[in-house]
Nucleic acid binder design. Structure first.
Length: 372
DNA sequence: AATACCGGCGAGT
DNA sequence: TCATACTCGCCGGTATT
């Protein structure tokens, strides 16, 4: 019996309805009530959107992304419904502790977000999926014992299949897709369920007569390339075939952003007061991570909810709040010059092209440092 | 021709 | 009807070298 050189066993772990479950753990008495985590924008009493909700609320139709006001309308008959403002610092702390538990189960881990991670457990299982299932059960038990938290786990031969598997049963699921089950698992799914296929792509595929994953897996690659491009086209077909060579590996952060909803739509750059805290926050976050950025950009969501970006590459890497403010102001000013009469609803700052602060000093010393 | 940059878009949490 | 705050990645166009 031999283990094929490239056969892997990957776990995808997803913490169930994360923000809402964090609140349930903190306040057990709300556990059986609809729980809605809100991002209040501050425009009016209940302006803003639902970030996430627990399954009690979801079953009643309150899902991520809907307006808070609409959620309140839907739950108006449920007097016990709980609406809570998002408390990111608390959720981040819970996340960190759980991620530590995950990390203890594999050296090869990739945290995807506050509530998701991939683990490559190949070297522990050596291709034995029943042993992977034991690892998954152990992880679920340990998270439950340590944090009173449920999670879902998907097991598969690569990240894509593990991700599709974890989505197949939530919450508190454990789904294992053996290598020889991959095609039969994926084939009947509607293409929209395939990871990476959102509404727009689904719509285009539908117009091509491609409704289920099997159709996509069998589709002519050249035809896909002509519509989705030479990278995305072939990628779609591979995904549909359950093929994914992407390795499990922590990635460097590439960008960082902060955005706010303005009290009123702005028609000229007059919100320096609102922009300053964003610049300060970005500056602090960069400093905490010992990072500098080489580009600074702005994000403007206009009155008609379209997203506009402007960015500039800097002469020298920085983490300076003042620099972000200066460049941000200039970019917003030119944005308003180019778009006379356009209103901005939400405004943000984004920094990208991140580099380690220490590295940059070595490679690009300032004159003072060079002669220092 | 190759690379860098920019801005729009799409997807996912 | 009302429509958050992030992060990542691709695409095509254009500028730079």
């Amino acid at each position: 019996m031999s283990l094929s050189r490239d056969a892997r066993t990957i776990l995808a772990v997803d913490l169930d309805y994360f923000y809402a479950q964090c609140e349930e753990v903190r306040k057990p008495e709300i556990k059986d009530k609809p729980v809605v985590i809100c991002v209040f924008s501050g425009r009016t009493e209940d302006s803003g959107a639902v970030s996430t909700s627990n399954y009690v609320a979801r079953r009643l139709g309150v899902k991520s992304g809907i307006p808070i006001i609409l959620a309140k309308r839907i739950l108006s008959k449920n007097i016990d419904a709980v609406f809570l403002p998002m408390d990111r610092d608390y959720y981040d702390a819970v996340s960190e502790r759980i991620m530590e538990i995950l990390r203890s189960h594999s050296q090869k881990m990739e945290q995807m977000s506050v509530d998701e991670a991939y683990l490559d457990v190949t070297e522990y299982t050596r291709g034995d999926y029943s042993s992977a299932e034991k690892i998954a059960s152990t992880i679920k038990r340990r998270i439950l014992e340590a944090e009173h938290f449920t999670c879902s786990v998907g097991i598969g031969p690569n990240k894509l299949v593990a991700k599709m598997a974890v989505d197949a049963k939530k919450p508190d699921g454990l789904t294992m897709i053996l290598p020889d089950q991959v095609r039969s698992f994926l084939d009947p799914l509607p293409v929209g369920k395939l990871f990476g296929v959102g509404p727009k792509t689904e719509e285009k595929l539908g117009a091509m007569g491609i409704k289920i994953v099997k159709d996509l897996a069998n589709c002519d690659e050249a035809r896909l390339s002509s519509i989705f491009g030479k990278n995305l086209g072939p990628q779609l077909k591979l995904s549909a075939q359950g093929i994914d060579d992407d390795i499990v590996q922590e990635r460097e952060q590439e960008q960082l952003s902060r955005i706010v909803t303005l009290k009123q739509d702005a028609r000229a750059f007059n919100f320096e007061y609102e922009l300053a805290p964003l610049c300060r926050d970005i500056s602090e976050r960069l400093a905490a991570k010992k990072l500098l950025c080489k580009s600074v950009g702005i994000i403007a969501i206009t009155t008609d909810l379209k997203t506009k970006n402007r960015a500039r590459t800097l002469d020298a890497p920085t983490s300076s709040e003042a620099k972000f403010m200066e460049v941000g102001s200039e970019l917003f000013n030119s944005f308003f010059d180019e778009n006379e009469g356009i209103g901005v609803r939400r405004a943000g700052i984004r920094v990208s092209n991140l580099i380690k602060a220490a590295d940059s000093q070595m490679k690009n010393p300032t004159l003072a440092e060079f002669f220092g």
